[in-house]
Design a protein around this nucleic acid. Structure first.
Lengths: 180, 180
DNA sequence: GTACACATGTAACCGGTTACATGATTGC
DNA sequence: GCAATCATGTAACCGGTTACATGTGTAC
C-alpha cells in the first residue's frame, strides 16, 4: 500500500476530524457546497473511506458490526490524526505548483485548526517562494517563445501567469492575516 | 468507444494540426515547456496517440508499416480536423467552470488558428457568463457559511473566489484583444 | 564495438466516473 | 402497505502514473 492517500482521502479525514460523520454526511457536504472540487458520488467516497479504514486511519464511532445499511458515524484514530498532520506538513514541491495549486490550497484550508502559527507561516513562505520560482520560469519562456505563439495561445499562456500572480498576492494577504 | 476523447488527446491533435510531428516530438514539447499541464511520459502519450489512430483522427504521414522503432510523423485526417473543430465549439457548461477552467483555457489556446473571430467572441462571452454565475454562487455561499469556517478555511475559499475574478478580468481583456 | 540519445511501446496499478443494486427508515 | 428518501456499497470502465522493455542511429 502506498504511503500517501489521495487528496480526497485527506479531505475526508480532515472533515472527520472536525466532527464524526457518516459517509452520507460527507457526500451531502460535497453536494451542497459550491467549491465543487470533489465529487459527491458514492463511487468515489465509499471506496476512499474503505482505504482509510484499511490503513487504520479511521474507525466507526460506536464499535460492533452494523447490521444492514444503517448509518455509521466515523472518526479518525490516533494513527489517522498523525497521518493527517504529516500530510499538512509535507514540503512544498515544485510539481505541486506546476500542476495547479489546488492540492496546496486544500492543505492550507485545514491548517489553522491543526498546526501552530509558526508552521503555517513557514508553509506560506515556501509556497510563495515556489510560486515566484515558477513565475520566473514562465516569464523566461514567454520572452523566448511568445512570438511563436498564435494570439489565443499567448492569451491562454498569460491567463496562467495572471493566475499565478494572483496566488502570490493571496499568499501575502494570507500571511498578513495569519500573523495578526 | 466514447464520442469524446481526453484533454490530452485534443491537445495532441491540436499540435499535429500545427505541423506533422512524431510521438517523440510531442513528448519533447511537453518536456521543455513550463506550463506543465500534461505529462511527458510515454505511458500517457503513446496510448493517447493509439486512441486517436483507432478513431481515425490521425494517420502516419508516409504510409506503410514502419519496420522496428523508427520515427513516424503523424498528421490529422479530415475526420480528425472535424472532431477537433467540434471540440473547440462545445458549449461552455457550468461544470467546466466549477472544476477549474483549465479545460476551457486549453480550448481557447487553439481557437485563433481554427475558428473565426465571431465564434471566439461567442466562446468568451459565454465563458464570462458562466464564471459570473459561479461567482454568484460562491459569494452567496460565503455570506451564509463564512462565519462557520476556520480562518484558513475562509482564506482558502477566498483564493478560489480571487482566482475566478482573475479569470473574469482575463476574459474581458481577451475579448478586447480579439476584437482588435 | 560500445555507449548514449533517439524512438516507441507495454504491463501493473490506481483512483475516479457512471450506473446499478440493495437494505433501512419515515411519512402517509 | 407503499413511496420516497436515507444510507452504503459494488462492478465495469477509463485514462493517467510508474517502471520497464526493446529496437535504431550516431559519435567516438
Amino acid at each position: 500500500m502506498n504511503a500517501r492517500d489521495s487528496d480526497l482521502g485527506y479531505a475526508l479525514l480532515a472533515l472527520l476530524q472536525q466532527a464524526p460523520r457518516s459517509g452520507y454526511d460527507l457526500r451531502k457536504l460535497f453536494e451542497t457546497n459550491p467549491i465543487g472540487h470533489f465529487s459527491d458520488s458514492p463511487g468515489a467516497i465509499y471506496p476512499a473511506l474503505g482505504r482509510l479504514r484499511r490503513r487504520g486511519w479511521i474507525e466507526p464511532l460506536s464499535g460492533g458490526a452494523p447490521s444492514g445499511r444503517r448509518r455509521q458515524a466515523l472518526r479518525p484514530t490516533a494513527l489517522g490524526r498523525r497521518a493527517f498532520r504529516a500530510w499538512l506538513q509535507l514540503p512544498v514541491e515544485h510539481k505541486d505548483v506546476a500542476h495547479g495549486l489546488d492540492g496546496l490550497v486544500l492543505r492550507f484550508a485545514f491548517m489553522s485548526e491543526n498546526l501552530e502559527r509558526r508552521a503555517i507561516v513557514r508553509f506560506l513562505d515556501s509556497l510563495r517562494e515556489a510560486v515566484r520560482a515558477h513565475l520566473g520560469n514562465l516569464e523566461r519562456f514567454r520572452r523566448v517563445e511568445a512570438a511563436r505563439l498564435p494570439p489565443s495561445g499567448r492569451l491562454a499562456f498569460d491567463s496562467g501567469v495572471a493566475g499565478l500572480r494572483g496566488y502570490l498576492r493571496w499568499a501575502e494577504r494570507a500571511l498578513r492575516e495569519i500573523k495578526r
